[in-house]
């Protein structure tokens, strides 16, 4: 079907994303507010756990703000992956009765979550400024960082959506994976000298840098929380992982698409 030109595709994406946003908050009083409230609540929980019980959060000034700069993008990442994993299966009747580019389904889930993330980040930035974390020039790097991270999330989402059609375990697996992934990512701790102090193993810290989301989380921390220029390794990591996941995601999705339609 060659008549799906760019304009048509853009329109389809807009519609799917706006459907997603509308549907999510129908009959919900707080509506979009939940996207702020969820990380806020988890921030409060983590804050108490890591300052009152495990007591390492005290090493980081304004630990709650530090937490938020990581929790918001993490929330985007995990919500996007959960939603895109089941996106093909949830729309099986649609897929089997009209032709349209099916890749738009997992990608639309990621984009809908991106809109939330951007709005939440604006609110966070205001709070950060109030507490004296004035951003530096490095804030302009937020845009390329977000683009790269979205590309990576979409790539992983495509892979998972296809996998879930063949094996329903993928959905369960993603939940467990995300739990482990969260603690393996520099969200509640940084990867710098303080991280060494918290984790007490510089070797483990080096290994954690290979985590695909580590680079992005560190970029968020340095741009938003510290107001410094992100380290070069973060950019290398983020770019390499993004390109890799997108390439693999696209290739697998394209290859699997004709089979997926029949398996649904």
């Amino acid at each position: 079907m060659s008549n799906w030109d760019f304009g048509r595709l853009r329109l389809l994406m807009e519609s799917l994303v706006s459907k997603d946003l509308k549907v999510r908050y129908k009959r919900s009083v707080l509506g979009f507010g939940w996207f702020l409230l969820k990380p806020l609540f988890s921030m409060i929980v983590y804050y108490f756990v890591f300052t009152r019980i495990l007591r390492f959060g005290g090493a980081i000034p304004h630990f709650s703000l530090f937490l938020l700069t990581g929790l918001l993008p993490w929330n985007f990442f995990s919500s996007s992956l959960s939603a895109s994993t089941s996106s093909l299966l949830d729309n099986h009747r649609l897929i089997r009765s009209i032709y349209f580019p099916r890749m738009s389904l997992p990608v639309a889930e990621v984009l809908a979550n991106l809109i939330h993330l951007v709005l939440a980040l604006i609110v966070l930035e205001a709070v950060l400024i109030i507490f004296g974390h004035t951003p530096g020039l490095s804030i302009i790097l937020l845009i390329p960082a977000l683009i790269l991270f979205t590309v990576m999330t979409a790539g992983v989402g495509m892979l998972l959506s296809v996998g879930n059609v063949f094996y329903r375990d993928v959905k369960q697996f993603v939940e467990v994976l995300l739990l482990a992934w969260f603690y393996a990512s520099p969200i509640i701790y940084p990867l710098d000298s303080i991280g060494v102090y918290i984790i007490e193993s510089p070797k483990l810290l080096q290994i954690l840098k290979f985590n695909p989301v580590a680079g992005f989380m560190e970029i968020m921390h340095s741009i938003l929380y510290a107001g410094t220029w992100p380290a070069a390794w973060c950019w290398v990591s983020l770019s390499v992982w993004s390109v890799m996941f997108l390439t693999v995601g696209l290739a697998v999705f394209r290859k699997a698409e004709p089979v997926v339609v029949k398996e649904l």
């Binding site: 519609s15 009747r93 349209f100």
Partner: peptide, 30 residues
């Protein structure tokens, strides 16, 4: 294609919202 009617409709959206959404699925601009 009249293979399965109303499949793209989302129960929580209104008739009009669903028409807009499905219009884009069959490739119509807004």
């Amino acid at each position: 294609s009249l293979l399965d009617l109303g499949v793209g409709f989302h129960p929580d959206l209104t008739g009009e919202e669903n028409l807009m959404l499905n219009g884009s699925l069959i490739g119509l601009d807004r």
